[in-house]
Structure formats: structure tokens, C-alpha cells
Design a protein around this nucleic acid. Structure first.
Lengths: 211, 211
DNA sequence: GTCTATACGATGATAGAC
DNA sequence: GTCTATCATCGTATAGAC
């Protein structure tokens, strides 16, 4: 690839990947055909197969780009300078497009992804990285390692399960309810900060604080 | 349909539905073709299209049967005579085939399901019914209505998210870790029973009780 | 690198005999 | 009710010219 083409943005390739990411997020990988990606991106069929000889190649590029974006975002939230528990609340309570589903978590029930060892590995890596980040924050908050890991799993599961509930019921509030239910439990012992943060996230009045 | 055929079990129809349920659980609805259902069930193509003129009809029958089974099982656990919190712990901690994913929850990211209003409604109904059951148990345990609903959302989200984590990481323990993390929080205030129940479920040593 | 043309199996059915 | 054709379309490419 020449320097000139690189400077032009390798625009065909980039547009293909961007289109793939969008379509994968909306329909999943298995339900998205190379043809759809091609016409959504505006490039021709010849270009598509020049850059990505097989659907697997296209899927890898799209999925890897999406997980890279997502992990970067999560790290930014979980590695702040505020109190560890606040960062966790901020991550869990972040505003999300609940009805769209998690771009990464969805892939977990996508046959085309799970049947492909490399794709599965990319998705798996995202979640192990994320769990490590959340567990580190819980340890920082004072929990022992095993407890921190369990609670990190719970926190990430709440988000993923919140997506499922929201999509199933057609109501984005299902996700925020799940998050409130969890965050309320986190803060319930005496060690919670009185005002209650959930800074950047959905700072909704917590129904669980008053049982 | 004659009484005799009914007595014989309408065997073609039943076998088709059973095969559809199995395939949907393993591959999802979108990734399952009528042809696959046909050959898995052993009936001929003529019979398939006689009983289920379209794929939508077949999908409705399979999905409705699966949600009916699942809601019945959940109700049995959540309406016992033991303490309400114990029933909830029992439901959440139930042994599940984590790597297989939730037969119902998975459908939430199945394009073929979400694009079909009737299928979506069946899946939605399952979750609203389930949330109602869990919320009732939380109310029974002494929570006010809003708090009970939030916590019910959290409990169901933990299970659904646990499936996602297990499948993503390829490790069934990811689900039990999420459950431990959540159940530990439920029992952490002074009102927990000392011995710790989680009767039928995974009564694993709770790492979160000792922070 | 990009284009047009072509190939071939699978999908979701329909037609009509038995 | 069940069976054996048959079909139009899509999905996933490959071939070869420009």
C-alpha cells in the first residue's frame, strides 16, 4: 500500500470497515451479508473482495474495530482519579442505547461469531479486559481479590443483562432499573457517600436507597 | 384434525416443534432453516409446509413452547413456601448450562425474532412475567414496590448477563461468579440468614461474604 | 485497486400427485 | 396429510478485463 493511498485514507477499506461496524451493531454479523456492507459503504464488489477476500476477514476487521473502541471507552471511565466506587458507578450507570443492545455482548449469541474461533477470541478478550478493569477498581475500593472479581462479574453482567431486558421488553427503562437495583445494593452498607454520585451516568432518584 | 390423529400425538407437528426448539436453542431462529428443522425431525417437506406454511409459523410455535416451559419452571421456584429471599437466591443460583446461553434471552439479539412483532411480543411477555414474579418475591421479603421492581430487574439481569459473560469468556464459572457477586450483596446487611442458603442453586463458598 | 460478469449452493417457499 | 419436484432469490464468493 503506497504512502499516497494511505494518505487518502485507504478510503475504500475504511468505509467498508465503518459500514460493517454499523451493520454488525444493528443486525449482528451472521445476518449481515458482504453485499449489504458493500452497498452501504458505496464501494464496488471488486474492491470489497480485494480488501477482504472472505466474510471472515471482513467480520474480523469490523468486530476488532468495535471492541477496540469499546474497551478504550471503558478504560477512560474506570481509570479516573475519582473514588474507585464512583468510577464503577459511573461505568455501570453510563447512558447507553439500551434498545440497540451491546455492540459486543450481542455477538455472544451470534452463530456466525461463535462458530469462528478467531472472532470468538476477540469478543472474549474484550470481556476479560473489561472484567480486569472493573475488578481492579473494586480492589482499589477495598475488597479482597476474590470478592472484587465476583463483584466485577456482577457489575458487567448487570449491564449486559440490562441490555437484554431492555430489548426484550422494548423499554429502555428496564436497563436503568436493573442498574438502580444493583447500585443501590453497592451503596447500602454505611460506607456509601451520602449525596450519591453516579456522576456522568443516569443520576436517577434511586428507589432502592429507601426500602 | 381427527380425534385419532390427536391421540397419535399429531406426531409430525409435535416432532417439528420439538426439533425447532432444540435448533433455536443451539443456533437461534434466524440461523435455523425450515429445512434443518425438517430433517432433524424426520418429517418430510410436504408435512412441514402443511403444518407450518411459513417460517414465521414454525418460529412462533417453537418460541412459544420454549417460553411457556421456562416461565413454568421459574414460577415453581419463585412461589415456594420457603423464605422469599431464599426463593430468589434459589432462582438466581439455579444450575444452568451457561455456555449454551439462555434459550429465551438469546432471542433478544436474533434479527429474525426482533424483526417479527409477534415473536418479539412472546419474548417480551416472558420477561415481564418473570420480572413480576421476582418483584413479588422481593416485596414479600419486605421491600417497597419501587425498590422491589428495581431489584427484580437486577436479579434477572444478573442471570442474563451471566450467560453473556460465560459464553464470551468460554467459562461457565463467569456466570457463577456474577451470581455470587450479586447474592453476596443481597445478604450483606445484617438481615441475612447466618448459614447462607442458596439451596438448590450453586451453593459455592461465597467469596463476597468475607471482604 | 476497482469493475462487470458469472457460478453454485442454500433458503424459503409453491405445485401437484398420492 | 404426506411426498416429490420445481423455483426465484440471496449469499458467498471467483474470473478476468481495465
Amino acid at each position: 500500500m503506497s504512502r499516497v493511498q494511505e494518505a487518502q485514507g485507504g478510503s475504500a477499506r475504511r468505509r467498508l470497515v465503518a459500514a460493517a461496524q454499523e451493520l454488525f451493531a444493528r443486525q449482528g454479523v451472521g445476518a449481515t451479508s458482504p453485499r449489504q456492507v458493500m452497498s452501504a459503504s458505496g464501494v464496488g464488489q471488486g474492491s470489497l473482495y480485494h480488501h477482504f477476500p472472505t466474510k471472515h476477514d471482513l467480520a474480523m476487521a469490523g468486530v476488532a474495530a468495535t471492541t477496540a473502541d469499546a474497551v478504550e471507552l471503558a478504560r477512560a471511565e474506570l481509570r479516573g482519579s475519582s473514588a474507585a466506587l464512583d468510577r464503577i458507578r459511573s461505568y455501570v450507570g453510563r447512558r447507553r442505547d439500551a434498545l440497540a443492545g451491546c455492540k459486543v455482548g450481542r455477538l455472544t449469541s451470534d452463530q456466525a461469531v461463535m462458530d469462528d474461533a478467531q472472532l470468538r477470541a476477540v469478543v472474549g478478550r474484550y470481556f476479560t479486559d473489561l472484567l480486569d478493569e472493573v475488578a481492579a477498581a473494586f480492589r482499589e475500593s477495598g475488597l479482597a481479590d476474590a470478592a472484587a472479581r465476583d463483584r466485577a462479574h456482577a457489575a458487567v453482567a448487570i449491564v449486559q443483562g440490562g441490555y437484554v431486558l431492555a430489548r426484550a421488553t422494548g423499554d429502555p427503562e428496564a436497563m436503568t432499573a436493573a442498574v438502580r437495583g444493583f447500585v443501590g445494593l453497592l451503596g447500602e452498607p454505611e460506607n456509601a457517600s451520602p449525596g450519591g454520585p453516579m456522576s456522568s451516568g443516569g443520576g436517577a432518584p434511586s428507589a432502592t436507597t429507601r426500602a
